[in-house]
Amino acid sequence: MLEQFLTVPYLPFTIACVVMIGIGLIEAIGLGLGHLDLDGDVGGDMHGGVLDWLGLGGELPILIWLTSLLGCFTVAGVAIQQVAEGWRAAPLAWPLATAGALLVGGLLNTFAARMLARIIPGFETSVISSDDLLRQRATVLEGTARRGAPARAKVVDRHGQAHVIMVEPHDDRDAIASGSTVLIVRRDGARFFALADDDTFLRSI
């Protein structure tokens, strides 16, 4: 059976399954990427229309939705190829099977996403904007953060969810060593800027 999944007709579904497992591992190790809205506000006027139909109209994190879609696509594709083999003794060509799996898998995911949004608690309170990490304290995990050379840092949001972000010093001439605790004061895109707790500006706070 494993060899069958490595053949060309099944390859798109094998790749989708591997990607799905990879995303699941990212979620499992607690990076929290599925719970951090990195300014991914998709067309507000589409809310209640196409997004609702796709299962994205609620508060389901995008990575959970994508994992569900990949799972539905994989199941639909394998089922289509199995039916084709039973009917005509050979699987369909991969482009035809992929098109069918996208249609069927998309429909299945509409229901799956809505069900996940109902049964998985806490998403409506744990989905945050990246701006919500401002004025929070973080710990530099490794390396020394300098201007133009950010270091990885961990910050825990108000819901207790840990996030790994890239941090640079707020002041150009500062350097923040590994293990230091910092206060996040601003951000530019996905990059955050912080003041070390031993900064003279923070001593009076």
Rank of each mutant, 00 (worst) to 15 (best):
E3Q: 01
E3Y: 03
Q4V: 15
Q4G: 01
F5Q: 05
V8A: 00
V8F: 12
Y10I: 12
L11M: 13
L11S: 06
T14E: 09
I15T: 03
A16C: 13
C17Y: 06
C17K: 00
V18I: 15
M20I: 11
I23V: 15
L25K: 01
I26E: 09
E27H: 04
L31A: 04
G34S: 12
L38C: 01
G40I: 13
G40T: 09
V42W: 11
H47D: 13
G49R: 06
V50T: 04
L51M: 09
L51D: 07
D52P: 11
L56Q: 02
G58I: 03
G58W: 14
G58M: 09
L60G: 07
L63Q: 02
I64W: 08
L70T: 06
C72F: 05
A76P: 07
G77Y: 07
G77Q: 08
A79I: 15
Q81K: 02
R88W: 15
R88M: 14
A90I: 14
A90L: 13
L92R: 04
L92V: 15
L96T: 15
G100R: 00
G105H: 06
G105F: 06
G106W: 07
G106S: 05
L108W: 09
F111L: 11
R114G: 14
L116F: 09
I120E: 08
P121D: 13
P121S: 06
G122S: 09
G122Q: 06
T125C: 06
T125Q: 10
V127K: 00
S129N: 11
S129Q: 12
D131K: 00
D131H: 01
D132R: 01
D132G: 04
R137F: 10
A138R: 06
A138F: 10
A138Y: 08
V140W: 09
G143W: 13
G143P: 14
T144H: 03
A145V: 15
R146N: 12
R146D: 15
A149P: 12
A149C: 07
A151R: 01
R152F: 13
R158E: 15
R158L: 07
H163V: 15
E168H: 02
D174R: 02
S178L: 14
G179L: 09
T181P: 15
V182F: 04
I184L: 07
V185T: 06
R187G: 08
F192G: 05
F192R: 00
L202H: 07
